[in-house]
Design a protein around this nucleic acid. Structure first.
Lengths: 333, 333
DNA sequence: GCCCTCGGTGACAACGTTGTCAGGGGAGTT
DNA sequence: AACTCCCCTGACAACGTTGTCACCGAGGGC
């Protein structure tokens, strides 16, 4: 910028005015500056600009999700991007892979970078470490999973209700031997879903078939192996509840391999692209809506909203596509 | 930081030393500083730090893809993230939606933010506007699509070869009435793929059935409509080449609706999750490898590699899963 | 006892920008 | 003709940090 000022024969401040489209620079001077900018390939330095400016907006938010390659995460990211674009806010994104430690490192790093706000799909069980920031009014919105240990905005799906709906659906269709495959119980969404599942059994006055509960599966491979194992039991499940999208995908694969896709009922949690073509019955979370609401909340906070933390809960929906409507085999009444 | 220095009764510089883990601060002083940091909830400001530091690394790269929610883009992003994480580089990502204007705005913005480098899946036909940056040695790597108008690193798939392989496969299986549904020809990858398709016809000494060529489709809905229309022709196609993942998805939907999935051959470009379960034959691009190579190249440039621009071309692979192996109906020899 | 060395600490300027305020000159008013 | 007002422009400090260099005191060698 100094060079530009020199080349145009004006002061630094005048260049600054031209670059920022501030009023009050006469035509010829402005032209001289612009042509100097052109000639020297000058690029405005937003880093320095943000440092100096009093309001201190960087125009960047941090978004920490589970896995950028996962359809849930990427849809959320896209929805957030769309919500932020009109406000000229960009997104720094990272995958946490359910790692508590990485979550803390990333949060720390993003705060050091002075992002304007944070969207968090937490991997950790508790987020007390964020307390100082939240207290100081730093905008943080939790998505999909509620915060623990701090009070801040969140927009979550009613995971327990989703789990309930899925298994209620299977029980209503006559299934009793229902396998439950879910992620590690340290992940609150997973344990919430399982809680809902248990509530569904309770509603029918039934015991949960504990021998068919597989908690701690995350990967598609693990889920596939679990289904093979479960179906090989002496008294195998006639229906399966898959606690998240990768598990459902693994389950479909396993049942395909066994040629049992028409025989064993399956309800998944999380919709994903093309699941309709697989005829998969799922509990759908409206990810676009989730992202839009999170974005809206974050923007409000960034713009100075100081109302008490809000907890928004979105209902999931059961999408029947066939796999969940397979009846149990008629053996004994 | 000033407050911390005051609270600890030391100079600014000493605080700086402690925060940056520099050697040469005695035990008790260091402790005094750390406790002052704790008490005041001081957070190191990386923005100012980066401004002052001479080497001027921000530890952020920009990644501009087509659509963050698309499985191709999100897989690429994830691969890049994995390549960058060991080097403590974060990612600012944005969707271009094939908009030339947004591409330029975003690039400009990212450069203003002084990102250390840029990964571009370009939407524009030419990228001359980047010439000044490239000339000055700013690290830019093109992914999936080669640059036009500038010389810089790129890692691309051989799209023409992929198109050729797909249609060669169909022709070898006896199809002649092959529909070509592809994205707008202004997108170089799309036109490259179509070029390969035409080469395949030429190899067999055949004319391209121009009445079955639909160029300019991008969305799943458009592709679905196109398939319905094509299959309603008096002399309908017996096979379909779908020029990208969303088109293949639309085609599968359309054929499903018409109950013709077992009757019409289909080869898609771009693999996507669960396509194996749909029995879809595709041309697969190794996105993880692509992302890893792009990340490697970008890191080398950031670390000062000044060798001439490299052009890496990855071969695609045909994954036969059934849909592409459906023979043409036996009507007349 | 003097000088030198060296580890620890601090004062100051600088990174690239913008907010503040003062000054200069032309046009309009009395 | 003198004065006022307003529009442009520039000088300067400041944002939060770190590189540079100087200083101070203790310890060791002669």
């Amino acid at each position: 910028m100094r060079d530009v000022a020199e080349a145009a024969g004006v002061s630094l401040k005048t260049v600054s005015r031209v670059v920022n489209d501030e009023p009050g620079v006469k035509g010829d001077l402005r032209d001289r500056v612009l042509s100097a900018v052109e000639k020297l390939d000058y690029r405005h330095n937003l880093v320095a600009s943000n440092l100096r400016r009093s309001d201190a907006r960087t125009g960047v938010i941090g978004v920490l999700v589970q896995d950028l390659a996962n359809s849930f995460s990427s849809s959320l990211l896209r929805a957030l991007e769309d919500a932020m674009r009109p406000h000229k806010v960009m997104i720094v994104a990272a995958s946490l892979d359910e790692t508590t430690l990485r979550e803390q490192h990333m949060v720390e790093n993003l705060i050091s970078r002075r992002v304007d706000g944070l969207v968090l799909v937490p991997a950790s069980a508790r987020q007390d470490y964020l307390a100082p920031e939240v207290r100081s009014g730093f905008p943080v919105v939790f998505a999909d999973r509620a915060p623990r240990g701090i009070e801040t905005d969140s927009v979550v799906i009613d995971h327990a209700l989703g789990g309930f709906m899925a298994v209620d659906h299977l029980l209503a269709n006559g299934h009793r031997r229902i396998a439950i495959i879910a992620d590690s119980s340290t992940i609150t969404t997973a344990s919430e879903r399982v809680r809902g599942v248990r509530a569904a059994f309770t509603k029918y006055g039934l015991e949960v078939p504990e021998d068919l509960v597989r908690v701690g599966e995350r990967t598609e491979e693990g889920a596939r192996a679990a289904v093979h194992e479960l179906r090989s039991l002496p008294d195998p499940p006639t229906a399966i509840f898959a606690g998240r999208n990768t598990i459902a995908q693994g389950a479909v694969r396993a049942l395909s391999q066994r040629g049992e896709r028409e025989r064993v009922a399956l309800v998944g949690f999380d919709d994903f692209p093309m699941s309709d073509l697989l005829g998969l019955t799922v509990i759908r979370q409206d990810v676009s809506r989730l992202g839009a609401l999170v974005g809206e909340r974050l923007l409000a906070r960034i713009q100075g909203d100081t109302s008490p933390p809000s907890q928004q809960v979105l209902p999931p929906a059961l999408i029947a596509r066939g796999s969940g409507e397979i009846p149990p085999p008629r053996v004994a009444g």
